[in-house]
């Protein structure tokens, strides 16, 4: 089972690499606006995180899941747990 810290690390590193952000900016309360990201970046973030975790994000999220980085961590962790429980 993947640890929560490991999930967070993968998310943060993927976002930092894709959007050329300093990893220190990726604090739990950071949101799209404070990170300088826009709607096109939101699309690309889904692509990058789906590739990183092999989960279906685009058909499962609501805007509330993307309120800030912490909510994104929680959302991805839920998907990862569902995948683990399904034995995939």
């Amino acid at each position: 089972m993947m640890q929560r810290e490991e999930i967070q690390k993968i998310i943060n590193e993927a976002i930092a690499k894709e959007f050329e952000l300093d990893i220190s900016l990726l604090v739990p309360e950071a949101n799209f606006e404070t990170l300088g990201l826009d709607s096109l970046d939101a699309v690309d973030m889904v692509v990058v995180l789906e590739m990183a975790f092999r989960v279906d994000i685009r058909n499962n999220f609501t805007m509330a899941d993307f309120t800030n980085l912490e909510s994104l961590h929680n959302f991805i962790e839920r998907l990862v747990r569902q995948k683990e429980n399904a034995g995939e």
């Binding site: 096109l40 970046d41 699309v43 690309d44 692509v47 789906e50 590739m51 685009r58």
Partner: peptide, 12 residues
């Protein structure tokens, strides 16, 4: 596209 993987295409 040829691999039917539009999910991998970036927005730009």
């Amino acid at each position: 596209f040829l691999n039917k993987r539009l999910d991998l295409v970036k927005s730009t």
